[in-house]
Amino acid sequence: MRPDILTALQAARTAKRPVALVTNLRSGAQKLVYRDGTEGELCIDVDMIMAAQEMLARDESGTLQTGAGPIFVHVHNPPPRLIVVGAVHIAEPLVRIGAMAGFGVSLIDPRRAFAASQSFDGLTVSTAWPDEAMADMKPDVRSAIVTLTHDPKIDDPALEAALASPAFYIGALGSRKTHAARLSRLKERGFDDAALARIKGPVGLDIGALSPAEIAVSIVAQIVQTRRNP
């Protein structure tokens, strides 16, 4: 790999700019393909650039066979995101396990006392209201959102923002009873059954989790399952 390619690749990753490193596996010649352009010495035709851009959009690396030999497209997308609402006890293991599983984690809690009460491995807690915080974060198809507060004043606006986004995963902590009440409130706010079905509640895989760490494991497991094995 040439130094200019490595430098540009690292710069794109640092800037969270999606990029594919395209390599001719025979010659080793390389090109960086962005959503809106390319750079590098490897000569490939427009079809191949478009194929690489499609793979970037699908978040899927792989090898393409061409007349010039096999071409490997290595997709470097920014990490998928995990947005956690509620700096409660469970949030502590959840942000840690989420980060270990490869997610870029954000935490929102407008209650400053909660935000300051726990240790979150140096993670900055946004103390904006969830609807405002989420408007800034703009969750996309590679985002997971989990609400943990049990407080409708905080969880509901977060869930409304989540449902208005294309997030691949939405989960809400709370018992079956809490969840049923939550769904009827959201229904009154105009969300139909299909939209409400996107919310996983009670959140997490049913593994009999009891402790905060176990519940965090069950939530992250469900997020991974939804992402990898939808």
Partner: peptide
């Protein structure tokens, strides 16, 4: 919080080694 994504850490490590003047190869 920064993710511990497996691939990305390795590339960062490789780039850091290279930046220190070490000779580095990358397998993918």
């Amino acid at each position: 919080m920064t993710p511990d994504a497996m691939t990305d850490d390795v590339l960062d490590q490789a780039a850091a080694w290279r930046g220190q003047g070490r000779k580095v190869a990358l397998a993918t």
